[in-house]
Every structure is written in structure tokens, then in C-alpha cells.
């Protein structure tokens, strides 16, 4: 499995990661190497094996429907990058 710099840039966009132009090649090399390493997984027949998403065989616990959280906006926003009138500000969202 080998990834090109262009593919790396595509994945990087999906992950919203800026990758410097000259680094894409290096990432492509590293990622190709890792994907090559991971390819060993294909050597085993797992057609009859159920996937395991959790280490423990437990069911989801349910929480009672009570509002327990008080307003802590000022605490949460104390170190926020940019807020105004209680809102988090981001460059204009265009729909």
C-alpha cells in the first residue's frame, strides 16, 4: 500500500490538518510504511470472527433524566480563544 503526497493532502483536508507543502512527501512515505506494516492483518481469515469494539462484554448503562448541570459559562469561557456576548466566535459560516 503506497500513498502519494496528493492522497495525503486529501486525507489531511478530511482531518482539517494543515500540512506544509514540503512535508507531504515525508508523511506519504511514513504513512505508506505504516500501512505496509498493517497489511499483515490481511494474512488471517476472519470471515467467521465477530468484530470486537470493546474489551468488556457489558451493556450501556442508562442515566436518570435529571438536569444536574448548573450554568458555568463564565468559567468555561474564561480561557476561550474568542467570545462575545456569550457566543464563541468563528470566521463567518456560509451556508
Amino acid at each position: 500500500m503506497s500513498l502519494s503526497a496528493a492522497e495525503v493532502n486529501k486525507i489531511a483536508w478530511l482531518a482539517r490538518l494543515a500540512i506544509d507543502g514540503d512535508k507531504a512527501e515525508a508523511y506519504a512515505r511514513d504513512l505508506s510504511q505504516i500501512l505496509g506494516f498493517v497489511e499483515q492483518l490481511g494474512s488471517v481469515d476472519t470471515s467467521q470472527v465477530p468484530p470486537m469494539a470493546h474489551p468488556l462484554d457489558e451493556a450501556q448503562r442508562l442515566r436518570p433524566d435529571t438536569a444536574t448541570e448548573a450554568d458555568q459559562r463564565s468559567l468555561f469561557q474564561a480561557h476561550a480563544p474568542l467570545v462575545e456576548a456569550g457566543l464563541y466566535l468563528v470566521p463567518k459560516v456560509i451556508e
Binding site: 474568542l82 462575545e84 456576548a85 456569550g86 457566543l87 466566535l89 468563528v90 470566521p91 463567518k92 459560516v93
Partner: peptide, 15 residues
Amino acid sequence: KSLHEDFHGYSGIDL
């Protein structure tokens, strides 16, 4: 919700 009224070129986010 994204509030689109203009905050000097920014949108406001209310969660």
C-alpha cells in the same frame, strides 16, 4: 446553532 448576524465578520456559536 450558528448565529449569522454579523459580529464584525464573525459568526457566533451557541451550544
